[in-house]
């Protein structure tokens, strides 16, 4: 699945990435992303999972395989 939206660093627990799509759907991103991308528009591809997390910031998670900044 590929998603596009605004990336946000949420400071709960050890910190979490949340992607909010244009449709206001929130996904917690599981993966290492550059901290400089906080607040940026990104396109992310990966596998959607519905497990449980320590961050608990969104009901669905996307295990990130690839991520790119949108200009």
């Amino acid at each position: 699945m590929t998603l596009t939206g605004r990336l946000e660093r949420v400071h709960v627990g050890m910190g979490a990435w949340v992607l909010t799509t244009a449709g206001a759907h929130r996904y917690e991103l599981l993966g290492d992303l550059p901290s400089a991308w906080d607040g940026a528009q990104v396109t992310v591809s990966g596998d959607v999972v519905q497990g449980m997390t320590s961050a608990m910031v969104a009901p669905e998670q996307l295990r990130v395989l690839d991520a790119q900044l949108r200009s």
Partner: peptide, 13 residues
């Protein structure tokens, strides 16, 4: 039960 990103499956938990 959670991996290095803090995520885990229902069966692991």
């Amino acid at each position: 039960a959670l991996d290095r990103w803090g995520s885990g499956t229902s069966e692991a938990i």
